[in-house]
Design a protein around this nucleic acid. Structure first.
Lengths: 193, 193, 193, 193
DNA sequence: TATGAATGAGTGTTCATTCAT
DNA sequence: GATGAATGAACACTCATTCAT
């Protein structure tokens, strides 16, 4: 399996660094190859094309992302508490890797429609996780029992994503993990007094 | 004033159609010119460069957007009701122009950092409007009096934007205006039962 | 006659200034029109095309040039003295109009082969004047009686031109008229001790 | 070293032919590439940009030029004889390559100021060689001992250059090498009888 | 005469991808 | 597997010239 060979991860990590530092449109394959310490042609032994690097990058990192969140929520049954863990973990992981945060919140979105559709496919696993929490909350009565899961998920994800993007646009100059509690509260309680 | 001449709007409208149908990266200036019924060079009598078409497009449309919402909220003082008008108007306007919806939710975001910065400047007016509503709500006691306006605005905008993007990605195949009430309820009341 | 109308000269003078200040390749017709205080289209009422401005400019100025030199040599019969007047007048006229000096020595030469051929035609009158002086000198015995006029003319013109060009390239920062005597001496006596 | 690879010279030689035959302004990079038998992009592996082809072309050819002249003068100590060798070599080399003659005497001069400045830098080596000969002549008493070297160099170069340009403009239809003796005589002895 | 808005042809350069070694 | 030289498609922008007013 190619994904287990060292050069596979090597190239992906190089791509994260190069894209974060140079921006998506200035991240030529040759630059990624150089950063990874391989020849240009070698990239194509591990990835179908440039798009495939991006998609694989997102798959790889998002996979770790979801696993970590799942692991964090493992022993928690209360939906509201699960949601808090999810938000905290999400923010924590972005805070842990500045480069990755830039890539996922800003640069990856400059790719074209096709890539973004494939990225959305990868994202689905994360969204399903949110759905689970929401479903659990609705059933257990922690959340509204007649909750429109789809819409609620869009609120949860939209809010988290917007908060994360704003933070990255502002050069990550404040501690995003401090915002987790406030975001959680807003999502759960809404604006109402 | 160039912006008042008919060709200015003609070119912007052509750009919306061309970009929506071909995607940002396949929307050559010559294609836009053809659609607008002018020569390639004419574009440059009205716009500094290709980027400027995009930014002007967004300015023009977003300006109408904000005006329309303001007009809609004019005679309403209750913050929750204002918010509902804002959401409804937002969705309504996207529903009214399929092409524009594609451009603003998907294609515009593929532009590079510089353009996005300028786009954000234009967006600011909209976000200030949201802030006003939130501030009003917090002061009048309709919303939490100690509301973190910045965070709340990110929830409001993030949710609306995510709902809109999801709708566009799904080929606008359901009626997004039907979602306004649900979104409003979620934002105001949160997930809580 | 178009050449006698005020706008004709107005446009030519504008062209000299614009080309001297912006360089040949940045001297658009619109820039010349603006400097001349006329509309772009008006240029084409007086000149066939852009090339024609250049050629007319050179004709006009070179005509004055040749007349002035002829006038200066009128009452001098000695070929060596005539040559000195020619060189002095040539340098004097360049020194009198910085802009024109830049245009004739540097910018006009960037035009393409066709224009340069036409410019050479205009130049011919000047070269014939040189030939006359040389012929006179050969016949009167002031110069070598078996002088190769064509070659001698090329030496005379080549030397004057190179000295002038070097002066312009060095930003006209010394007084070129001071060089006339030395140049004359070199041309007449050569390098020999 | 890129300059030693065969394609470097291949492209330069192609450029000489294409520019000589089509004129500088109609010598598209793609045309040069085709003539060189390489792809357009290959040009940019060896040259920074189109200007760089021109400058490199001149460097390469002028380098050979100067070397050849130096080699020719090696065993000659008399300044007048050195000058004759210089003139003969110069004309001979132009006569040996019709295309190169057109490029150096006509087409290269159409380039803009920046290129011309760089070309002048390359030319300097040639001019220094002339200076050496003149200095030698002045010291040995073959030439005037109080010779203004700078002015004398401008006469020498101006004359040679004008003779060469005239020959090229006249389609090289006579044998320029036959003119070397006459030019040498004129430069050394001047017009005097 | 004079205007100036409109035209549209023309090209240097980048970079993802290939393939002979 | 690994290399990296070579490929060639793709496109925004300028500006001389025209012509309806």
């Amino acid at each position: 399996m190619k994904k287990d060979k060292p050069k596979y991860k090597q190239i992906i990590d190089a791509a994260v660094v190069v894209i974060a530092e140079n921006g998506y449109h200035h991240s030529q394959v040759s630059k990624i190859a150089k950063q990874a310490g391989v020849a240009d042609g070698t990239i194509y032994l591990y990835f179908k094309n440039k798009e495939d690097i991006l998609i694989s990058l997102f798959e790889e990192k998002m996979g770790q992302f979801v696993s970590a969140i799942k692991r964090g929520m493992e022993h928690e049954e209360d939906a509201a508490a699960q949601l808090e863990i999810l938000i905290k973990s999400h923010f924590q992981m972005l805070a842990d890797d500045r480069h990755l945060a830039i890539v996922t919140q800003l640069e990856l979105r400059q790719s074209n429609k096709d890539i973004r559709l494939k990225i959305n496919k990868v994202l689905k696993e994360y969204l399903l996780l949110v759905d689970e929490v929401l479903h659990n909350g609705a059933q257990s009565g922690v959340f509204q029992t007649d909750l429109d899961i789809r819409l609620a998920r869009q609120m949860v994800f939209g809010t988290i994503d917007e908060v994360a993007t704003t933070w990255v646009i502002n050069d990550q100059k404040y501690d995003i993990t401090n915002l987790a509690a406030g975001v959680h509260s807003l999502i759960v309680r809404g604006l109402s007094s």
